[in-house]
Amino acid sequence: MSPDRAQSPRSGGPPPGADRELVRGWCEREVQQELPGLGLMSATVEVQLKGSLTGASSPAVLARLREHSNRWRGARAVNVRQEAIPAAYRVFFRHIGLDPDISRTPIEAAVLERMIDGGFLSEGLLADILTIALIDTAVPVWALDSDTVNGPLGIRLSRTEERLGRNAEGPSLGGGRLVVADADSALAILFGEPAPGHEPTAGTRRLALFAVQVAGVPALHVEEALWACRFALTDAGG
């Protein structure tokens, strides 16, 4: 299954050091037939920021978080479930057997945390960059250590007795779960965190970013979310 290529919508092109292309991931036929509109888009990024990815964020990133904290107040938080893109993810959660009021969609989880904590709290550079992209676009982005990924990413059902990640002691998935996978193994449960051993560490310099698109979410928003992360990770955003 060779992935399609999708160019960034920005006319100015990517910042120096970033890969030029976003890659549309593959999707297992059975999944595609049942859930049309589901897709994965990924990008490989050479991190050019100095310092640890899990360490403290730069002042510019912290300022963005503060700015978003001020924008997201109670009334908007209550109504976020009715906005077009969050609503599309809510519907998709229902379609895959998740109750979005229990297993919250990423944007609703972030907004709820903001309400509880009184602001979007910093959780490290990479986590903050992903959070900012999520709040900006309502599209969640995850990051994997690119050196642990083999081949293009895609979405499929887990096999019987398959484990999460390449580690033989990884958690068992059971059959029929929707997972994000590479050519070898399942790297994350769909909308879940990356498998142990595949998540970026402090010194990771090459990331595989991916975002999940569902029916009702324009590709432009998905590309924008990935683009925002790449831009921030290459320090082109200051």
């Binding site: 059975e30 895959i96 057997g97 109750d99 009021d101 229990i102 059902l157 779960r177 929707l178 769909l190």
Partner: peptide, 16 residues
């Protein structure tokens, strides 16, 4: 409350 006490829970995302 948006919570539905009677909702069916599945073990992770899957095709229904």
């Amino acid at each position: 409350s948006p919570r539905d006490a009677g909702s069916e829970t599945f073990s992770g995302p899957r095709l229904l």
